[in-house]
Design a protein around this nucleic acid. Structure first.
Lengths: 202, 202, 202, 202
DNA sequence: GCCTAACCGAGACGGTACGTCCTGTCTTAAG
DNA sequence: CTTAAGACAGGACGTACCGTCTCGGTTAGGC
């Protein structure tokens, strides 16, 4: 970490020759992170990123297939949302803890807006879509299913329940309200989600 | 549906003066509908719509606040997906029927892609977002909550369950898989959604 | 003169029905005069005039063939440059007087810029060109030739000199410097113009 | 003049990347020249030029400050009116020769209309005005004054005559009739201009 | 003094151009 | 030979204006 000053494009000299790839990547991701938090995904473009990061468009096109894909990487660089899944042995308590954290992250930090913007853009950016899907399936969804399956083995969830579906009915339900925000998202809402599933609604 | 030929702006005569507003609106919506089904939302732009509908950009900007908002109206003009909610008295059967229809619409017709693209774009188009929210809350979501509340009064759903949340845990769960398509969406999936809620998972 | 208040478009009511033609014309010319003096000819357009004068475009198109033609009329309404030609019997003195006045008008008042702008626009606006030519030939040019011809009859100018050419070599020379302003225009310049012609340059 | 076919953008292939600057400039000037001779200055616009030259608007805006400025350059590219000033030792004969050529150029070729249109537009296009002034002062006006000053040193013109003024009273007088065309412009007219000055009119 | 036709205002309409921004490809120069 | 720098063709943006036209009202002229 020799050079982490903000440096909003002072460079200006240093000629045009080759620079170490890692240095360039770092510059790009730092700039994208800043821009995401400052202006949101909508304002992002290869053009602006190149200008702000002091990097040529050629380089960006070489390493990232679309603005969205680059934004996704910049998002993780900037947000670093570590949603570790607790395991106290009580699945219902652990789910409550986790969903409360998730709701807080989505509603009280910039991560919420960025995430919905990323999902939004992925509807028309195939590169972003597949990358996002990859990260999501191997990340958040997997963490959840692993923990749920352990609870199933412990007899806290019925054996004939496909646990992946629970992910949709818990986190997916929250995403639904984030993406079409006509109803509030808060901890009470998360509690109801859990209660409905565990106690049944009949 | 007597006239579905492409018809790339035959008009061509009739001078340039004012035309009856209704005629113009009809031309626009017809063109947008065709373009949506043919190319998808991503290819849509005021510029292209104006060209294809034989309408001036000024007119478009006067009546619609954003491409997305216009696309939304064109979507309903083209798709007209009437998802009436059945009421046989058995809520669980009715939900199954409705969700099966919904799944079919989303996976077997162009409506699915258009819908997710619209939700996607609404993440960065406030005009589209508020219009979509308005239609959604007063449309699909309301139809569902009304039916669910009736079931609640009939004692088929526990009284302390806020029925709006069920919308998120049924349709919202489906939207989740449509928007982040890493797991399949089919009738069996819909059945599990219903079973989990009615029977509970514990 | 019942209503000569500035009135920058207060109207706002009074409905839409027919108004006396003279009242409308007066409103238009007043507004055009103001706009010309304020912004110059380049900023003028039927659209803006209609807005500022509280008059409909239909009316403007009905009475004036082009913006330039309307501007020309508005110019005379606003500037009212009465360049009467003196006649003391001494043509050289009278020319000096007249040219000094002309130079002053062109360099010290807005009339100069407006006039060159009008001549400029007339190069691409045939309606303005012919109207301007008509006014010019029957106005300034005629006043000058009449006075010059009288001097010729009085023996102050050689009989074989076509006096119309003198207009070009006096006022025309000044126009030249006004239209391609690479040399100064002042009273000394006017004096030299007269001296060159009367004394010869050989 | 081997290639004067219209050629409405044959290129069409070659992708979209950067092209050698000289090639692009040449395409632009050729197209502008053709358009000027075909349609005149009034029909010229950045939009049309871009379309016809197969060049992007960005490029035009980068290199030329206004349509007029580009037209001026295109004019010289197309017309190439070399009005060399003869020097036979007899200034009066040389002036006659030169003015006859000038009159012919202005009345018998498209150059005349283009020139007056350019001067016209320069009244409301500062970029064009300053560029035109620069070219005019360092070109035609300078050629004339240089030749006139030499005649003055040779005693053919009185020493106290500021020769720049003669330019206004000869060419300027012609411009006057070109710009406000209410009197004819021909060789006889040119002769009178010279006679009036050299012989005096008194 | 009433009615109706002529006319006006308001402004929507199809177009064209503006000047800016961004995309994805390509060239040139520097290292 | 890679990188930076950025020019290039293309296309969309949102705005302004043009000249034509529709619509709704008002007023004035004919009765």
């Amino acid at each position: 970490m020799t050079d982490s000053t903000p440096r909003p494009a002072i460079r200006s000299s240093r000629g045009r020759g080759r620079r170490p790839a890692d240095e360039v990547r770092a510059d790009v991701l730092r700039a994208v992170g800043e821009m995401l938090l400052r202006d949101g995904l909508a304002e992002l473009s290869f053009e602006r990123i190149a200008r702000e990061a002091g990097v040529s468009k050629t380089t960006l096109y070489k390493w990232w297939p679309s603005v969205g894909a680059l934004a996704l990487e910049g998002y993780f660089h900037a947000v670093e949302d570590t949603l570790a899944f607790p395991d106290t042995g009580d699945i219902r308590a652990d789910l409550t803890t986790q969903l409360h954290h998730f709701v807080a992250l989505m509603t009280a930090t910039p991560a919420g807006r960025l995430l919905t913007e990323l999902i939004g853009r992925s509807q028309s950016d195939p590169e972003l879509a597949s990358e996002y899907r990859r990260l999501y399936s191997s990340g958040r969804r997997r963490l959840a299913t692993v923990r749920l399956r352990r609870a199933q083995e412990a007899g806290q969830i019925r054996a004939d329940v496909p646990v992946e579906v629970l992910v949709d009915q818990l986190w997916g339900a929250i995403y639904h309200r984030l993406l079409i925000p006509d109803e509030p998202v808060d901890e009470a809402y998360a509690d109801v989600l859990i209660r409905n599933l565990f106690d049944g609604i009949a």
